[in-house]
């Protein structure tokens, strides 16, 4: 066994697979830029699959309780403002669009375009969270946050909640149905809260990316980071598309 054979220092590699120049962003353990890009892209997809399963637990819980306590879920969903919800959907779809445009700008090496798109995405993301804050504060005022202070009066006596009442004319619910609205709001806060948490993380990364992009990063042909972040952002968009349909639009007629 050739135990004492000459050892080539690692730094002199990678052994080129037909590449003459080795860009600075090529990590030492990859053979080529394509391999590196493919790898991180696939890893990102696998991460998104874990995210999907993470939300999967919540969707399962939602489906079970929605079927068990349908009337309570209808009454609960009437407390959500469909205008705010729709507006938020539009905001998020637009931010997905600007993000996709940002990836295109990075791919085609347009620096100012990339910065603009990232800033727009950033602003739209903040706008989404702003609207969410308005919605949350309404719930907090009405004591619709599950836990000790949960208040049933909007469901036991809908007339006491004139804003909602004049729109839907809900009938009073008996106590044993009304109290299940707490589960609806648990799921509402869990799902939108998890979603908002992902948004906050995403906005943080966006801020970092704007900073880097202004300094000229991401337009050298190495767009993996922008691309992967784009995947993450679109995934959040997809989650919201379902949340909107399931939480806001249960029964509006």
């Amino acid at each position: 066994m050739p135990n004492n054979q000459a050892i080539v220092p690692a730094a002199s590699e990678p052994a080129g697979a037909g590449h003459n120049e080795h860009p600075s962003y090529l990590l030492h353990h990859f053979q080529s830029v394509e391999q590196q890009a493919d790898t991180s892209n696939f890893a990102m997809w696998l991460f998104l699959l874990t995210e999907m399963m993470f939300f999967g637990g919540l969707f399962t819980a939602y489906l079970i309780y929605r079927n068990w306590y349908y009337l309570a879920f209808v009454a609960g969903s009437h407390q959500l403002n469909v205008v705010w919800g729709t507006l938020n959907t539009v905001v998020l779809i637009c931010s997905s669009f600007t993000m996709a445009m940002g990836v295109w700008c990075a791919e085609t090496r347009r620096r100012s375009g990339l910065v603009l798109c990232l800033i727009l995405t950033f602003i739209l993301g903040l706008g989404f969270l702003g609207i969410k804050t308005i919605e949350y504060s309404e719930k907090i005022e009405k004591h619709h946050v599950p836990g000790f202070h949960y208040n049933l009066s909007s469901f036991l006596d809908p007339a006491s909640d004139p804003e909602i009442f004049k729109e839907y004319h809900d009938k009073p619910l008996p106590l044993d149905i009304a109290r299940h609205t707490e589960l609806y709001f648990s799921l509402y806060f869990l799902m939108t809260g998890m979603h908002a948490l992902h948004m906050i993380i995403g906005i943080g990364i966006l801020g970092f990316m704007i900073f880097r992009a202004r300094a000229g990063a991401y337009i050298s042909g190495h767009v993996t980071f922008v691309e992967n972040f784009g995947l993450y952002w679109h995934f959040i968009d997809i989650v919201w598309i379902y949340l909107f349909a399931l939480l806001y639009l249960i029964s509006r007629h």
């Binding site: 399963m53 999967g56 836990g147 869990l190």
Partner: peptide, 28 residues
């Protein structure tokens, strides 16, 4: 693994806030 992650989150929230998903007295 993500599914146990969410179930552990739910356990913690149930203890801290009382979200009721696993609480029969609230319909969970």
């Amino acid at each position: 693994t993500p599914v146990i992650a969410i179930s552990m989150v739910l356990i913690m929230l149930e203890r801290v806030i009382g979200i009721g998903l696993f609480d029969p007295t609230k319909g969970g």
